[in-house]
Design a protein around this nucleic acid. Sequence first.
RNA 1: GCGGGCGUAGUUCAAUGGUAGAACGGCAGUCUUCCAAACUGCACACGAGGGUUCGAUUCCCUUCGCCCGCUCCA
Length: 543
Amino acid sequence: MAEPKQNPLMEKIVSLCKRRGFVFQSSEIYGGINGFWDYGPLGAELKRNVKELWWNTMTRSRDDVAGLEATIIMAPEIWKASGHVATFSDPMIDCKTCKGRFRADQISEIPCPQKPSKCVGECHGEKTEARAFNLMFQTYVGPVQDDSAIAYLRPETAQAIFAQFKNVLETSRQKVPFGIAQVGKAFRNEVTPRNFTFRSREFEQMELEFFIKPDEVIEAIYGTVAVRTPNSQLLSPQPNWGWQAWHHYWVEERVRFYEGIGLSRETLGFHHQTPAELAHYARACTDILFKFPFSKKDADGNVTGDELEGIAARSDFDLSQHQRFSGKPMGVFDEELRAAWAKLPKEKQDDLWKRYYDHRKNYLTKSAKPDETPEQISLQATEDANGLAKGQYIPHVIEPSAGVDRLILALIANAYSEVTKTDDKGKSETTVVMKFHPRVAPIKVGVFPLLKNKPELVAKAQAVYELLRPHLKAVYDDGGSIGKRYARQDEAGTPFCVTIDFDTLGEKPELLDTVTIRHRDDGKQERLNISELLDFLLSKIRG
RNA sequence: GCGGGCGUAGUUCAAUGGUAGAACGGCAGUCUUCCAAACUGCACACGAGGGUUCGAUUCCCUUCGCCCGCUCCA
């Protein structure tokens, strides 16, 4: 009666997550709630490690990124400016006959999929009533639940960064180019949560908005914009980088991050969005994919993977939107630009002015509110271009936006491996080893006495455990046999296990105060002095 | 949201219109001088609600959840 195994590996991973305490279904005792997942003891450690590594990599180890922690509920105008209210609230009609779903305002234009000679509104399929599809979670601020109190749980963390751009700029002593990073929860009322935690309704994002000068500004100051050549590595940022170089740089930075936590390039995939896929304001978007067990094959039979992170070049769209909707200036003043502009030959000034004008006019036209006339738009674009000559511009942005939960799932899938051992009697047994990179492993070290019923061993093992635990996540285990404890830690993905034996106590005097340290992935042991233990572990975990 | 499949200990699986079993795992203990040893004991399940029935985990309905396909994917 068992259901057919559609994806045995994925099912084993889900089962392990429950069994060992990586991931539980939310509200499980009440039957669960679709699209929501909890992290158990091991998952919580794993997730914390990943977020901390991202934060350290993206902010603390860089001079040019500042952090932010904004609220989940913000002024609803934010989501009007970002476009989320408009794009999320189209009334939709389902056809029960052909299973199609159509925008209610387009049923008299779209041809029926089954009878293309007729439009959806005319065909005989049985239709549902028009229903509003808003993928943002709604709530009310304050006790009165009327329309004026409607607010939304943020569908992405990014907008808070744009909304607080000027405050961060003024308080962080940063200047463009610089970034603002944030880690936090976001909520989307997904139509179909799928693939375990991959698409959840409540999830966590790690987002960087990296603000850069428009190419026209780079050109005004440095004469030319540095162009990416096939061989250029673009490893360290240069003042004359334009958006392409920065975009390429951040893709590489992010790939290096994934490699640094154990996801090799072979496990990753890339998708460069085509012009048709790109939002109208975006210039490029590169998705970094991971080849999940549930990832599908493309037309050529290759697994490309599913999205972990998108690195988008979003032009100056976001800050421009918030400038228009809030009425507050979102531009920056650049002394260098003003000084450089004055020294430019007239033709160059005119050329840059025209290009900036065209860009602004294009944006303003596409984002125009219904009551804005072409004349007003031209006037605003002229004003914007004139600002350039005075050293003013709206920064462009490169947005590396990663999903924490997707990354956790990728790390779990990547770590999962099975080892089959056959004993002397020919009995074989398969065990699971979670090969997490030591940097992300939920537990860094297990400490065991070789035998439980020898008080000297137990006391010494507990002393070693107390020595390590202030510095890293350690566990003490004296249950069962030593082999069982190793196996337990293998399933948790603990990279190192330390065992206190009789030599530690001085049975061989030359080995007094040494312990065995056992490596998860090959089972090999080495002997270390207790005094060297902490440094050894820290070097493996931080190195 | 539509269609299909499926819900039994923590996990993997049995059985049954008449009070649910196993293995592994967990906990406690004995033992054990390095890779899930052995032994003893303990705890733990029919997703929820309603209906049919003398009696439902089993049959029916609803609901919730999981998987697959469609749809959606800012």
